[in-house]
């Protein structure tokens, strides 16, 4: 029982990082209206940005997160210019192939510049563990896990506020609903779409650094998988709804960790993919109420 609860905590922690990823991904798909295959690499750049911030400025977590957001944000501008701007009115698959090419480009550039080996990242957050006693069971919470979960909640809330209370946020929502109408309302669609893309990327960057801290390593090869997972989690939320996507991410994290419990760690990805395929077959719109033919 205790063991299951501990795995659940693991699942919730990992799930909250996935939730952040899914939120970022949904922002991009919703606002820009196009899917991306290069989300993993965007997370990677965020992770590396923060890694170097640790190298140069010491163990300052807040600064690292800002750096992660900033690096991914800037990369988002590049992605937008290269893969999206030109293809707004072209068939979907062209932009998609472009993002595939871009992801290959980033992955190998990073390997060239930073080296192919994985770099360790330890001692960022104190390795303390807190034990919560509920009656006879003791559940362990690592300080790391608590920090991660709190951060994710913080960002999710701030993003919601941004979308509902600020002018930019409202503009973004308008663009995601109907580009033509937004244009007619005087919104600069191109600039807004780019902003949406960059915000989504920025959150991806933060998810990237959180993952790296959680795994104690910064690597350049693991991110392709996360693109898929971000997409899967988003799908669960109907691709465009932020809160449902976050829920989807949380579910995925929990399912993965519980899956490992009953079988072996080598099957981790099988759970994610199988889960995704099942969802797509049974209920393509995920948790969302109505079907929207987004893509």
């Amino acid at each position: 029982m205790e063991y299951l609860l501990n795995q659940l905590v693991n699942g919730i922690c990992q799930g909250s990082i996935y939730a952040l990823m899914a939120i970022g991904y949904s922002v991009i798909v919703g606002v820009v209206g196009m899917v991306t295959f290069t989300y993993g690499e965007i997370m990677m750049i965020g992770a590396f940005g923060a890694f170097y911030s640790f190298q140069f400025f010491g163990n300052n977590l807040a600064l690292a997160i800002v750096m992660a957001f900033a690096s991914s944000f800037l990369l988002g501008i590049v992605v937008y210019k290269v893969c999206y701007e030109r293809f707004f009115n072209a068939p979907r698959h062209i932009a998609l192939l472009c993002t595939i090419g871009f992801s290959m480009l980033m992955k190998n550039l990073v390997q060239i510049v930073f080296g192919p080996e994985q770099k360790p990242m330890i001692n960022i957050i104190n390795n303390a563990t807190y034990t919560l006693r509920l009656g006879s069971v003791a559940v362990d919470f690592k300080l790391l896990q608590i920090v991660v979960m709190l951060l994710v909640i913080l960002f999710a809330v701030s993003l919601t506020l941004f979308f509902n209370r600020t002018r930019w946020g409202v503009a973004l929502r308008a663009v995601s609903q109907n580009k033509q109408a937004a244009y007619m309302m005087g919104i600069n669609v191109k600039r807004t779409a780019m902003l949406g893309n960059c915000i989504g990327c920025g959150f991806g960057g933060i998810a990237g650094i959180l993952l790296s801290i959680y795994y104690y390593t910064v690597s350049s090869t693991i991110w392709g998988n996360f693109s898929m997972k971000a997409f899967s989690a988003s799908v669960l939320g109907g691709l465009v709804d932020l809160r449902l996507s976050a829920l989807g991410g949380l579910c995925m994290g929990i399912i993965e960790n519980l899956g490992i419990t009953i079988s072996s760690a080598t099957f981790r990805d099988v759970f994610s993919f199988a889960f995704l395929i099942v969802i797509l077959v049974i209920r393509p719109q995920g948790f969302a109420a109505k079907k929207g033919s987004r893509v």
Partner: peptide, 20 residues
């Protein structure tokens, strides 16, 4: 015994499992 694939990066679930 617990095994993992060669490009695995997340070991916390395995650790929890083995610790139990």
């Amino acid at each position: 015994e617990e095994k993992y694939k060669s490009d695995e990066t997340d070991f916390s679930s395995i650790i929890t499992k083995v610790k139990a």
